[in-house]
Design a protein around this nucleic acid. Structure first.
Lengths: 194, 194
DNA sequence: TCTACAATACGAGACGTTGCGTCTTGCTGA
DNA sequence: TCAGCAAGACGCAACGTCTCGTATTGTAGA
């Protein structure tokens, strides 16, 4: 045992340069027109160094996403105590994010990447918030008795994200009341008049 | 005026052969690995004949979709008089359709195609039923007093389609109760016990 | 009416370009 | 000594343009 390894060790500088270049070119060109050669050139790296560590373009993009080089942050729903306005604010924030053409291209490219690579799909799913912050906010609402206790919160988050993604895909323009309507749908009707 | 044209006229046989070949190769290889040269060869047609009439691969796929060479039929929700079970049956049918790996590839390729071509996105949207049969069934439910009259039916259809698309993208396995939960969400709670 | 001609679409495929993924070379550092 | 590195050559596939020769169709002159 004790497999000693000798020889040079993997260069972290190259790795980071490659991820940075991938993120930059991805945002600029989109997933389809992303080329390994361009990434290598942009990163100042030999092609082999990319092929040595990542089997496919998809894997490279997936790692970019994991490491947070793509989609930094992401919307996090607040907890003001009012689940309805918090969800609405979240949807508004997401739509506002997608209004910037740059972000629009980014999202659609991510969808394209997801559509031919399962890993990317799953990570996109996590990162978009459906299984983390958004669900957490909904769970808090259940605990606070703000929504009916049998609400399938994981599915609610997914439905909201799905609606947003579909809007982006179909290029349907969003009207300003859409966030309210979406939240009404998933919460089972408009806010009761007090 | 009266700009007369002369010379040979466009060959309908070639046009149909190209669309057929595109549909066949699209379903077989997916959008990404679809090549114009392969389409030309499959259709027994010169490449120039394709480039003469379609500016891009996306446009070709879009026309395939318009003409119904792709996604024949599509699920049509029944009207049994019970909106809840009709919607559920529709969701089940759609998920069952996507369980076949062939259809799965087709759908994901359509999503990929939509993500870099707006026309395809819009047509996919129409064809998936969100703006036609599904909405019509929901409108009938409103007229019959089955659901609250202020339900934003167009958005409900979109939300359901979005949820299905997202499931396909994320490769999340579907459990058998998912259709029920999705319908519960958009209809504002589980079916009341009679 | 018939015939030449011009205009256009067609199948076929050559062409230069781009990006692929592999391989080689010479260098650097553990 | 051996592994990772940058650089880039290599053969391959598909790109989109272009040019052949042929077929089809309208226009115009006999």
């Amino acid at each position: 045992m004790s497999e000693q390894r000798r020889g040079a060790v993997r260069s972290e500088a190259s790795r980071v340069a490659i991820l940075n270049a991938t993120a930059a070119l991805f945002a600029e060109k989109g997933y389809e027109h992303l080329s390994i050669e361009a990434i290598a050139a942009e990163a100042g790296v030999g092609k082999q160094t990319i092929y040595r560590w990542w089997p496919t373009k998809s894997a490279l993009v997936a790692e970019c996403m994991i490491e947070g080089f793509l989609m930094p942050g992401g919307a996090i729903p607040l907890n003001s105590g009012d689940i309805r306005s918090d969800l609405e604010a979240w949807v508004v924030a997401v739509f506002r994010f997608t209004e910037d053409p740059d972000n629009d291209v980014l999202i659609r490219s991510l969808v394209a990447a997801a559509s031919d690579n399962g890993d990317i799909g799953r990570r996109l799913h996590d990162r978009l918030g459906a299984s983390s912050e958004l669900t957490e906010r909904l769970a808090a609402a259940v605990r606070a008795g703000e929504v009916r206790p049998d609400l399938p919160i994981a599915d609610v988050g997914e439905v909201l994200v799905g609606a947003v993604v579909l809007r982006i895909l179909t290029r349907e323009p969003t009207d300003e009341k859409l966030p309210t309507r979406l939240v009404d749908i998933v919460l089972g009707g408009p806010r009761p008049v007090a």
